[in-house]
């Protein structure tokens, strides 16, 4: 696969994609509340406000100004992290609400991705290596099962079994606000304790996905000439698998990482809701129920930005790992 594109050109191109997508996000996030049925003021300015608060709100959002000025103001506000004040928790700034929740969601998603890659990739590789044998069949069937069960159903099942029947994990949430932590380790231990069930639930689907991907990818690689040659050169089966077959086979899996992030966010919202895990997903869920528009806008923006960034990172990782992307 010869390519005329250099590595830096590739990076510039991908950053360009990112920028375009980011601009689209800015526009969509601005437009959605304004094109939704009804006057934007009725959506942005909740009915429970005094006339004074209402005027103050309109001022703050600049909703009396012409559209282009509104957009400019919106741009400045968004880019400086000012998403306004939450309606449902007035007058807490949306930004503050999100910053409290974001780390938990990033932890949940990061841990789920790491766990599912760490389990799925070796499992898929092992399945391909034992192609058609008992181990392979077992892995394939198992993955198929986990990929078929709905996430919310698994979430409820997990909660029922490990939170209620065998109560080794908490039924949900994180430690009550104001809990004193003796240190960072203590905080992390508590976070992990409360995150185990959500992480496992969220991972189940993705483990299966990465297992399938890796298995298929490796099966493509195994008949290649260079694998046979590595064998006859004197490398052991294990060396052939790990030095020659796995490295080119994980590359397609990495490209998939980026694409799967979108699903991951969807899954996170669901899992957070079921486990009452106070992350971004739950916050968005609550915001929708409360018709808290500034909060909806804020969470939508941040979650989408997370997806875009994750895809960018996956691409950069791919470019870094695959020598065929861009000449040196």
């Amino acid at each position: 696969m010869a390519t005329t594109e250099s590595k830096s050109e590739f990076l510039v191109r991908r950053l360009g994609h990112f920028t375009v997508a980011f601009c689209a996000l800015l526009v969509i996030n601005f437009a959605i509340p304004r094109v939704m049925p009804g006057d934007p003021t009725t959506q942005f300015v909740g009915p429970g406000f005094t006339e004074e608060a209402r005027q103050q709100m309109l001022e703050q959002f600049g909703l009396n100004e012409p559209m282009w000025e509104q957009f400019l103001l919106y741009l400045i506000n968004t880019l400086t992290g000012d998403f306004g004040l939450s309606f449902s928790r007035y007058p807490t700034p949306v930004f503050e609400l999100m910053m409290e929740r974001l780390p938990r969601t990033l932890f949940l998603m990061g841990a789920s991705v790491s766990l599912s890659v760490a389990i799925g990739v070796p499992l898929g590789a092992f399945g391909a290596w034992k192609f058609g044998q008992r181990q392979d069949v077992l892995i394939t069937q198992g993955s198929l099962f986990f990929r078929s069960i709905p996430t919310f159903w698994l979430a409820i099942l997990m909660l029922f079994v490990f939170g209620y029947l065998i109560p080794i994990f908490p039924l949900g949430g994180v430690s009550a606000a104001g809990t004193e932590y003796t240190g960072l380790l203590d905080y992390l231990a508590d976070l992990i304790y409360h995150s185990v069930l959500p992480i496992v639930t969220l991972s189940a689907y993705f483990v299966a996905g990465y297992t399938f991907l890796m298995r298929a990818s490796l099966l493509d690689i195994l008949p290649e000439n260079y694998i046979t040659i590595a064998q006859t050169k004197g490398l052991s089966d294990r060396e052939v698998l790990f030095r020659h077959a796995v490295p080119p086979a994980v590359l397609p899996v990495i490209t998939q990482l980026g694409f799967q992030i979108g699903r991951l966010v969807g899954g996170a919202i669901l899992v957070e809701a079921v486990f009452s895990y106070p992350g971004m997903g739950q916050l968005m869920f609550e915001a929708v129920l409360a018709r808290d528009f500034p909060l909806i806008q804020g969470t939508f923006f941040l979650l989408t930005l997370t997806v875009l960034t994750a895809m960018l990172i996956a691409d950069l990782l791919y470019a870094f790992l695959d020598p065929r992307v861009g000449g040196s």
């Binding site: 260079y226 050169k233 020659h244 020598p323």
Partner: peptide, 23 residues
């Protein structure tokens, strides 16, 4: 395995794919 490549060696058919693309 001691004989292969050391004493008997082969240029495989399809030598265009004789090398691992990422090494």
């Amino acid at each position: 395995k001691k004989i292969q490549w050391n004493r008997i060696s082969m240029i495989y058919q399809g030598a265009q794919n004789a090398f691992n693309p990422v090494k």
